[in-house]
Design a binder for these strands. Structure first.
Length: 570
RNA sequence: UGGGGCGUAGUCAAGUGGUCUAAGACACAAGGUUUUGGUCCUUGCAUCCGCAGGUUCGAAUCCUGCCGCCCCAGCCA
C-alpha cells in the first residue's frame, strides 16, 4: 500500500488510520470495485449551522478521500424548500473550509438533479414500479400499518402508467393543490421494514426553491434523491449516520431499479455526542431563538462558529475526532476529551503572557518611586524558538486577588502576611502589611522586594514555593475577559425531559476590570495565548477592538490546587 | 419470534479461535521534576469482555437461549 501519511499536525510517523469503514474501503479496493476509485461526499441540508457532530462526518469522509487518493464532494441536499435558505449555504461552506476539508470544484446541489430525478420517476412509472397516489396524508399513514401489522395497498396502486404519467406532469406544473397527490414507489405494503411500504418519491409543494425558483411544484423526498445524487456523482462510499440503517434497503432498491450510471454503497456509523451539551439542530435553534445564548456563534455552543469564537482550532477538532474513532455503537464522548485536544495543541503553540483577572494592588515599598525597568520573559517554555519579550516592572503592580490570603492553610504556597513568593520573571517579594478599607476588605498589600532576586533567581539558594503572575500598574491594559463554562450543568442535559431546566446559570462570567501586560493591547483576531496560571484565551472576534481588547477563555489549565482544596472541604 | 442495529474499564475504543493472565487515549489516583499548584516523567487503574449454557486441547472472538439499549409507523433529512 503506497501512501504518504501527511495530514496536518502531529509527529513523524502517524499510524495508518483504521476503523471498520476504512477496512471496508481497503477491501473494496483490493477486490477491484469502483474501478479502483474512492469518492466520498458530505451532504448537508442547508437548514442550519454546522456543529462539532458534523465535523466528525466531514473529516471522516474527506480524510478517507485523501488517504486513498480519491475525491470529496460537497453536495447540498436541498430537496425541501420549506426549511432551506441560501444564508445557510454560505455559512456551511465557510465552516467546512475552516475545518480544512476541500471539495475543490465539486460543489453540487441535489436540486441540480431535479430534471434527471424526474425522468427516472417516469421510468419507474413505465416499468410499473411507481404510481401516483391520491390518498391524503392521514390515509397514507393509516394504510401504511404499524411496525407490527402489515399495511394495505393504496386504491391507486394499479393506476395505469399513462394516467400516472399525466398526473405527475400536472403535479409538476402546479395544476393540483398541495396534498392532492404523491408519487409512490410500488414495493411491498407488507414489508417488515416500514421504509419499504410504498415510500413517497414526490410530494406537491407549490413553493419557490432557493435555487430553482418556481420551476417546480413537486419536490423529491430524501430517499428518492439521495442515492441517485450519489450515483450521478460517482460516489463510491456514501457515509451517513446510524439512523439511516433502515433506509439502506430502499437506497439499494432505487439503485437496482433505475438506470443509474454507478452503484454507490451506503455505510452507517455512530454520530458524535458530547457530554454537557446538546447536538440536535432543533435544540440548538431553540437556544438561539429563545435567547439562552447570544447567537449561533456564542462561544458556549458547540456549533463550529461557536467553537471557533471560543478559541478552538480546526486541528484540535480533528484531534478529537481521531481520538473518538469510528464505530457503530451509540456513545457519548466526555467533553473533557475536547478540552484535552485544545490544551494539547495550545500548550505547544500558544505564547505565555500575563493577565490579572481580579486585580489586587501591591505596592513595593522599597522599590524606587517613578522607576520602571523592563525584564525579559520567555514566550513559550515548550518552544525556545518563540523567543522572549520585555515586560515592565515598577513600584506598583497588580496581582490576582485569589493569590493572597490573610489566613491560609499550610499547603497554600502563595502570598500571605510575612511570606515570600516569586513574581514570575521578576523578583521575590515579601508581604509586610495588609491595607483594608472600612468594611474590612483587603484593598492593598504593601510588600518589599529583594533586589538580588532579579529575574526570579534565588540569590542565595533559598526556596520559595510559590510563583505568581502579575501586571505592572502604569502600563497595564484594561480589558474585558469572558470566562466560559459548560452551557449545561448536567452531563446528559436531555435526560429527564426539559433540557432547558439544566442550563448552567454560571456558564458565562464577564470580568471587566482585568489588567493585561502592555503587549496585548493590539492583539489581533486569531490570537491564541495562555494567560499564565489562568488558562488559554483568545481575542473575541466580534467585540474586541484595538486598545480595548476582549478575551474569551478557551479552556482552563488543569488545576491541582483547586482539586486539593475541594478535597479538603469535603 | 415486526424489522434493523449495538452491547469490552468512569468515557471513547482496539480486538475477526491460540502471541489476550484484553491495545491505546481521555478521566481518575499516587510519586518525581518544575521561575505556570501548567507542561513533562514514572506508576496504578477490566483474571475479564451484557448474562447463562454449549462447541473446542483452547473463545471476548464460533453456536444456542436470555437480558438491556438505540433506530423505523414525517407528504423531514
Amino acid at each position: 500500500m503506497s501512501d504518504e501519511t501527511k495530514s496536518a499536525g502531529k509527529g513523524a510517523e502517524e499510524a495508518e488510520k483504521s476503523d471498520f469503514i476504512r477496512e471496508r474501503v481497503r477491501q473494496d479496493l483490493a477486490a477491484g470495485r469502483n474501478e479502483g476509485r474512492v469518492h466520498t461526499r458530505f451532504p448537508p441540508e442547508p437548514n442550519g449551522y454546522l456543529h462539532i457532530g458534523h465535523s466528525k462526518a466531514i473529516l471522516l469522509s474527506y480524510g478517507i478521500s485523501q488517504e486513498f487518493g480519491g475525491q470529496f464532494n460537497l453536495r447540498f441536499d436541498d430537496t425541501n424548500p420549506e426549511k432551506e435558505e441560501d444564508e445557510y449555504v454560505q455559512a456551511i461552506m465557510e465552516d467546512i473550509k475552516w475545518l480544512g476539508a476541500d471539495w475543490e470544484d465539486r460543489l453540487y446541489h441535489t436540486s441540480d438533479y431535479f430534471g434527471q430525478l424526474y425522468e427516472w420517476a417516469q421510468h419507474l412509472i413505465r416499468e410499473g414500479k411507481a404510481y401516483v397516489c391520491s390518498l391524503t396524508e392521514e390515509q397514507v399513514r393509516e394504510y401504511r400499518g404499524t411496525v407490527k401489522e402489515a399495511g394495505r395497498p393504496s386504491p391507486d396502486r394499479d393506476r395505469p402508467a399513462e394516467e400516472s404519467l399525466g398526473l405527475l406532469e400536472e403535479m409538476k406544473n402546479g395544476e393540483h393543490p398541495e396534498g392532492a397527490y404523491t408519487l409512490r414507489a410500488k414495493i411491498d405494503m407488507g414489508h417488515a421494514n416500514m421504509k419499504m411500504r410504498d415510500p413517497l418519491l414526490y410530494r406537491i409543494k407549490r413553493m419557490p426553491h432557493h435555487r430553482t425558483g418556481d420551476a417546480w411544484n413537486i419536490y423529491p423526498m430524501y430517499d428518492y434523491a439521495h442515492g441517485q445524487g450519489d450515483a450521478i456523482e460517482g460516489i463510491t462510499h456514501s457515509i451517513c449516520t446510524l439512523e439511516f440503517e433502515v433506509n439502506r434497503p430502499l437506497y439499494d432498491w432505487f439503485i437496482e431499479n433505475l438506470p443509474v450510471p454507478h452503484a454507490p454503497r451506503q455505510i452507517e456509523m455512530a454520530r458524535l455526542n458530547l457530554t454537557y451539551t446538546v447536538m440536535s439542530k432543533r435544540k440548538l435553534l431553540q437556544l438561539v431563538t429563545e435567547g439562552h445564548v447570544s447567537g449561533w456563534d456564542d462561544p458556549r455552543l458547540i456549533t463550529l462558529r461557536g467553537l471557533r469564537r471560543r478559541g478552538y482550532t480546526a486541528s484540535a477538532i480533528a484531534t478529537l475526532c481521531d481520538r473518538v474513532g469510528v464505530a457503530k455503537r451509540n456513545s457519548t464522548v466526555d467533553f473533557a476529551l475536547l478540552e484535552w485536544s485544545i490544551r494539547e495543541e495550545l500548550n505547544r503553540t500558544a505564547d505565555r503572557v500575563m493577565a490579572v483577572l481580579r486585580p489586587l494592588k501591591v505596592v513595593i515599598t522599597n522599590y524606587p518611586e517613578g522607576e520602571v525597568e523592563w525584564l525579559e520573559a520567555e514566550n513559550n517554555p515548550e518552544d525556545a524558538a518563540r523567543g522572549t519579550r520585555k515586560i515592565p516592572f515598577s513600584r506598583e503592580i497588580w496581582i490576582e486577588r485569589e493569590d493572597f490570603r490573610e489566613e491560609a492553610p499550610r499547603k497554600f504556597f502563595r502570598l500571605k502576611p510575612g511570606s515570600e513568593v516569586r513574581l514570575k520573571h521578576a523578583y521575590f517579594i515579601t508581604c509586610d502589611e495588609v491595607v483594608k478599607d472600612d468594611s474590612g476588605e483587603v484593598v492593598e498589600l504593601r510588600c518589599s522586594y529583594d533586589p538580588e532576586s532579579r529575574g526570579g533567581q534565588s540569590p542565595d539558594g533559598r526556596k520559595v514555593r510559590g510563583t505568581l503572575h502579575f501586571v505592572e500598574a502604569t502600563h497595564a491594559v484594561e480589558a474585558e475577559v469572558r470566562l466560559y463554562d459548560h452551557l449545561f450543568r448536567e452531563p446528559f442535559p436531555e435526560e429527564g425531559g426539559d433540557f432547558l431546566a439544566n442550563l448552567n446559570p454560571d456558564s458565562l462570567e464577564v470580568l471587566t476590570d482585568c489588567k493585561l501586560e502592555p503587549g496585548l493591547a493590539e492583539a489581533g483576531t486569531d490570537y491564541h495565548c495562555q494567560f499564565m496560571r489562568n488558562g488559554y484565551f483568545c481575542v473575541d472576534t466580534v467585540d474586541s477592538r484595538p486598545g480595548v481588547p476582549v478575551f474569551n477563555r478557551t479552556a482552563t489549565l488543569r488545576d491541582s490546587w483547586a482539586k486539593l482544596e475541594a478535597k479538603g472541604k469535603k
